[in-house]
Design a protein around this nucleic acid. Structure first.
Length: 579
RNA sequence: GGCGGUGUAGCUCAGUUGGUUAGAGCAGUGGAAUCAUAAUCCACGUGUCCGCGGUUCGAGUCCGUGCACCGCUACCA
């Protein structure tokens, strides 16, 4: 199969649900990897657009509003604003961060729905659902609890028992109770008409689609293949008043809305449309990003999201007119939390109080620190755990001591001994050349890992570059030759400056603040890139600084973390103050 | 129960299409160095590659099977 060539890359990160604050698990899974990838692509000068936004519909938002005595709109405004701010401060560099509550989104969603309906991919059916006569509203299964018909567990959900794992029809649940704010009445089953997406009709196309992507991660492929073998029609409407209205003339459609999971991924399209209007002033600017075969669409998600991005949304897109399907769905595992008291990893949960919000983290750490640790410890192929000691050890021991210190010792010595300029290369011997030859090789190795979505490995290779450079520095002993052979010292530091220059480029996707500071010290320009592309500022890292180029006095790029301070924060975290 | 992922050194991980004595970092021990953010460098590894069985001249890698952990199981978003 010939390698497909693409002209532009459209990257999405899962839309976080605007019913809570984003936490570190979200970042490590769906946002930071996407941002690193996007920054890398931009730096290469490729055309890349990064789209995200808040997912703002669905019943849980209405229940939060009910609980707090405010409107759903107030709920989503609060979380949308806070999350957009957290992303921005962390340097998650969206080209647009949209909202599914935008009127434009109703238009996109309805167009998708109508097209599927007109082409026979949507059918009606009647369902029996729990209904609270007390609140005069339908209740999703998760908001009805009762006694499990199999094991007698009293905290069972409407259709599933958490205790024994049994699944059953709502009819079988014993003593059902509503489980939402202000209502613990006994719900009754009531019939309601709904609309279903006919997934089985897409089976062959989905199968062929999955077959054409053997390069996807094992976890994503495994989950997707599990689904495609057993596709069922899926209900895409709900009994609620909070969501996109159903574009049908049926009176039964009133009081119902399109299911949040149907409209959320469509938000990627809406937000691309809005980006075109805002940035290009062109209501057709979005189309190439979704309809040109030469567009490479990539979704970054957590593993819980795989069925929606590898099966359901591709089906929805396949049912449209000429939309591209994702070329890759990058699904991460989960970031757990290491509990220092018990010595065990546990799932982050609000009730345990062990979550760490991005907002709290940013109050205590520079974005580069958070980005470094979450990438170095990303849950790419298995669950990982956030651990304070590990954060301290890895950030201090790797990026500070190995990379940061190499940069600092090189630049300090150069500035002091060579009048603030890159020294003359002089007579380079085999050892110098070996180091200089290694640079483009390693830059390619880092870029290759990024192209393969292996962000941990890519970052490790950055650190390896620092390690290799420290070995060189120690072997050449410029602090000794300085007193005996200034030309030799110049050659050594010339080579070291080239390493620093390469590091500046390869650090940029991971730790953009440090890279920016370093580029100013080196007097170089790291191109921003963007949707229109630009010059290749990634491979420019392979170029060499010219002798005589001025250098500014270096500053510490990665200040070390204080052990006692980390211990204090870990304590605060343990007390549940980190969310 | 069904399905999927993961399992390599004390810890975190890398191991391309099967190919010599299975690697790196961290931690530990000893040493060197003093340019640098007390940062660096060198030396030191008897690992049931989770177990069992199979294919093969050859298996960490492929196949089967069992175990452990994690997740999903369609109305959680």
């Amino acid at each position: 199969m010939p390698e497909k060539t693409f002209e532009r890359t459209l990257v999405t990160s899962a839309l976080p649900y605007a019913n809570g604050y984003i936490h570190l698990g979200h970042i490590a899974g769906a946002y930071l990897p996407a941002d690193i990838f996007v920054r890398y692509k931009r730096q290469k000068g490729e055309k890349v657009l990064y789209v995200g936004g808040s997912d703002e519909h669905g019943v849980p938002v209405t229940l939060t509003a009910l609980r707090e005595g405010i409107t759903p709109k107030e709920v989503i405004d609060r979380y949308h604003t806070a999350n957009a701010e957290a992303f921005k401060r962390l340097g998650i560099s969206y080209d647009i961060y949209g909202r599914t509550s935008w009127p434009l989104h109703a238009d996109t969603t309805q167009a998708f729905f109508t097209r599927l309906n007109d082409t026979g991919y949507i059918h009606e059916d009647e369902m029996e659902l729990w209904y609270s006569e007390h609140l005069e509203r339908f209740l999703p299964d998760r908001y009805v609890s009762g006694t499990c018909p199999k094991c007698g567990y009293t905290g069972a959900n409407g259709d599933e028992c958490e205790s024994c794992g049994a699944q059953y029809s709502p009819h079988d649940l014993v003593s059902p109770r509503a489980n939402i704010p202000g209502d613990d009445s006994s719900p009754v089953l009531r019939k309601s008409k709904h609309w279903f997406l006919d997934l089985p009709k897409f089976k062959d196309r989905l199968k062929a689609y999955l077959d054409s992507h053997p390069e996807w991660r094992a976890n994503v492929r495994g989950i997707a293949y599990g689904w495609v073998e057993d596709l069922r029609s899926r209900c895409i409407t709900r009994d609620t008043d909070w969501g996109v209205t159903i574009p049908l003339d049926d009176p039964e459609a009133e009081g119902k809305r399109i299911y949040v999971w149907f409209d959320a991924p469509i938000g990627y399209v809406t937000n691309t449309r809005q980006w075109g209007l805002d940035v290009k002033g062109d209501d057709a600017a979005w189309e190439p990003w979704w309809k040109d075969e030469a567009t490479r669409l990539i979704h970054f998600i957590g593993k819980d999201n795989v069925p929606f991005h590898a099966i359901i949304f591709p089906a929805v897109l396949a049912g449209q007119d000429g939309f591209v399907l994702a070329d890759n769905v990058v699904g991460n595992e989960y970031l757990n939390i290491f509990n220092r008291k018990t010595g065990k990893e546990e799932k982050g949960s609000k009730s345990k109080g062990n979550m760490i919000s991005v907002k709290w983290m940013l109050e205590h750490f520079a974005p580069d620190i958070i980005r470094y640790y979450l990438c170095a410890n990303a849950p790419e192929s298995r669950d990982a755990a956030f651990d304070w000691d590990d954060l301290l050890k890895r950030y201090n021991g790797e990026i500070c001591d190995v990379v940061g210190n190499f940069i600092h010792r090189s630049l300090t010595m150069t500035v002091k001994n060579f009048d603030g300029q890159v020294p003359e290369a002089g007579n380079l011997d085999e050892e110098d050349r070996a180091l200089l030859d290694y640079l483009p090789t390693q830059i390619d190795a880092i870029g290759g890992a990024l192209e393969d979505f292996r962000f941990r490995l890519a970052l490790e290779r950055v650190i390896d570059l620092g390690r290799r450079a420290n070995v060189y520095f120690d072997a050449r002993q410029p602090w000794v030759t300085r007193k005996t052979d200034l030309a030799r010292t110049g050659s050594t530091l010339y080579a070291c400056c080239q390493v620093v220059h390469a590091l500046c480029h390869v650090l940029a996707p991971f730790t953009p603040d440090a890279a920016r500071t370093l580029s100013a010290i080196l007097g170089i320009h790291l191109p921003e890139g963007g949707p229109d592309g630009g010059v290749d500022g990634w491979n420019a890292g392979k170029n060499l600084l010219s002798p005589g180029a001025p250098l500014r006095k270096p500053t510490v790029l990665f200040p070390k973390l204080d052990k006692d301070r980390i211990a204090e924060l870990a304590e605060a975290h343990q007390r549940g103050e980190a969310f």
